[in-house]
Design a protein around this nucleic acid. Structure first.
Length: 462
RNA sequence: GGUCCCAUCGUCUAGUGGCCCAGGAUAUCGCCCUCUCACGGCGGGGACACGGGUUCGAGUCCCGUUGGGACUGCCA
């Protein structure tokens, strides 16, 4: 069996977005599963909008997702000579022709055709004129005027287009750059791509590209069109649906495993299984189990997966992962042992690294601000008197277990529920009514901070 | 408008003619656990878009309707 070659071909006109990441993932999975090659091609022929900065951003997003590619990324603009070569070939064999129509005239004729109930396709004005190059001229592909073009899509099954629906597409722009359809085909042919896995939005391009393959006398690759990812309103996912760039999810505190897992399950399935490591996906992935209908991006399920992977990460590693978010706020890093202890207390309380950092912030504040509602409710004169009475024992060094025993005994002595002594103390130590376990907090904070925070709580006046 | 694609719980999906009066996950609700909040455990409600065929039998095959999406650029 010959080695398969897949590719991911983003255009560097923006950051790597969710949809692109899934396309990249599927290509990567397919190649890695079948022991093939996965190559990256930067489609930068749009000179106006492509930037090196976006290229680097896409590369680092891929790296963050652990999607490694084979060889160096291929830049499409460095292959212009090759593209021109193929265009010249088609020109001399009569499969392409120069067109002198002006964009404004074209637009006008399109509108007129539309108004007359016709198709807004190129009317073929220059098709038989045998024109040569000229300033502002473009080269068009001379497409067939009858017949059908189709293929068996690995996801969608048989798809057929009537050639009359396809117009003579431009393959060389007036600025000397090849167009997308031409460059894609020439590159896929010369890079020996065997499987083209891409977004559903390209199905309409596929018959045009197949025609180009045929004109070039090249063998057709396999096509697999993955359904689109939609926003909650079922329209194509875009900025107005919130964050769409992969790196934005990184900044929001999502783990790459969670994003990969989520993206894989959006469209692909393996029975009832929900959790997949990248290795597992690679083993199990199968184009025949990719669905045909578009999927809605659901941030809540991503959250669930993220908390799953957070809980799965060993505390030592997890601490290092969320610490940067606290460092950004200027806090001093605790020793490793303390950070692990802190991590244990917050790891099941947040869905993102950012939430973990937020929940842990009170440990680091000089004096956590007292939430007015919490303080008013729990730091009543009675409770303050109780805290004052217990202050001596509370500010001694003890283990978490020691503090638990102590507080349970105190509650018993006063004949109240544990909550009655815990809540005022919690507000004193954290400023909030909701927090990690109190006994662990007492241990982590230590006598000095415990004392300071209790004193501050005793000074509170409603 | 035209072409193409799609259609199972709110959402992601299992389902490849009988195993389905439809299973899992998430979300939601209730109960339990409990020092708070979470986590966790248990349970509830919730879907085959509609109409025709084909067949002994249809979520599964065919046709139509409706609905949604993509494309319709000298963007990719």
């Amino acid at each position: 069996m010959t080695q398969i070659v897949t590719r991911f071909a983003p255009s560097p006109t923006g950051h790597l977005h969710i949809g692109g990441a899934r396309t990249a993932l599927f290509n990567w999975l397919l190649a890695r599963k079948l022991g093939g090659r996965f190559v990256l091609r930067i489609e930068d022929t749009d000179a106006l909008r492509s930037t090196e900065e976006f290229t680097q951003a896409i590369l680092s997003a891929m790296t963050w997702l652990n999607l490694d590619w084979d060889g160096e990324p291929v830049y499409q603009t460095r292959r212009l000579a090759l593209h021109r070569e193929y265009i010249d070939k088609m020109l001399s064999s009569g499969q392409a022709y120069w067109c002198h129509c002006k964009p404004e005239d074209l637009e006008e004729r399109r509108q007129a055709a539309l108004a007359a109930g016709g198709k807004p396709k190129y009317d073929g004005l220059c098709r038989e004129k045998n024109l040569g190059p000229a300033p502002g001229a473009v080269v068009r592909f001379k497409g067939p005027e009858a017949g059908e073009t189709g293929w068996t899509d690995l996801i969608k099954g048989p798809v057929v287009f009537d050639n009359r629906e396809l117009d003579d597409l431009i393959i060389l722009k007036s600025d000397g750059m090849p167009t997308y359809n031409l460059a894609v085909v020439v590159d896929d042919v010369t890079m020996n791509i065997t499987h083209i896995v891409r977004g559903d939005d390209h199905v309409n391009n596929t018959p045009r590209q197949i025609l180009l393959y045929k004109a070039l006398g090249a063998a057709l690759p396999q096509f697999a069109h993955v359904p689109m990812i939609l926003g909650a309103d079922k329209t194509r996912l875009s900025k107005r649906h919130g964050a769409t760039s992969v790196m934005a999810y990184k900044e929001m505190g999502y783990l790459p495993q969670a994003l990969n897992n989520y993206l894989a399950r959006l469209g692909w399935s393996h029975g009832d299984q929900e959790i997949f490591s990248l290795d597992e996906m690679r083993e199990l992935f199968d184009l025949s189990h990719v669905g045909r209908s578009a999927g809605v991006f659901n941030p809540e399920k991503l959250d669930w997966l993220n908390s799953h992977y957070i809980k799965e990460t060993p505390p030592e590693a997890l601490g290092e992962l969320f610490w940067p978010y606290l460092e950004k706020k200027g806090y001093a890093k605790p020793d490793a042992e303390t950070l692990v202890k802190i991590t244990h207390t917050v790891r099941e309380r947040g869905k993102t690294l950012v939430e973990l950092a937020d929940k842990a912030e009170f440990y680091f504040q000089e004096l956590p601000p007292l939430d007015p509602k919490a303080a008013t409710k729990f730091l009543t004169p009675d409770n303050q008197a109780m805290l004052l009475a217990m202050k001596d024992v509370l500010t001694k060094p003890l283990t978490a277990q020691g503090f638990e025993d102590l507080l349970r005994r105190l509650a018993e002595e006063k004949a109240v529920k544990l909550g009655a002594v815990a809540q005022p103390l919690r507000v004193a130590l954290t400023g909030q009514t909701a927090s990690p376990g109190l006994f662990e907090i007492l241990d982590i904070l230590g006598p000095e901070k415990n004392l300071k925070r209790i004193d501050a709580a005793l000074a509170f006046r409603a």
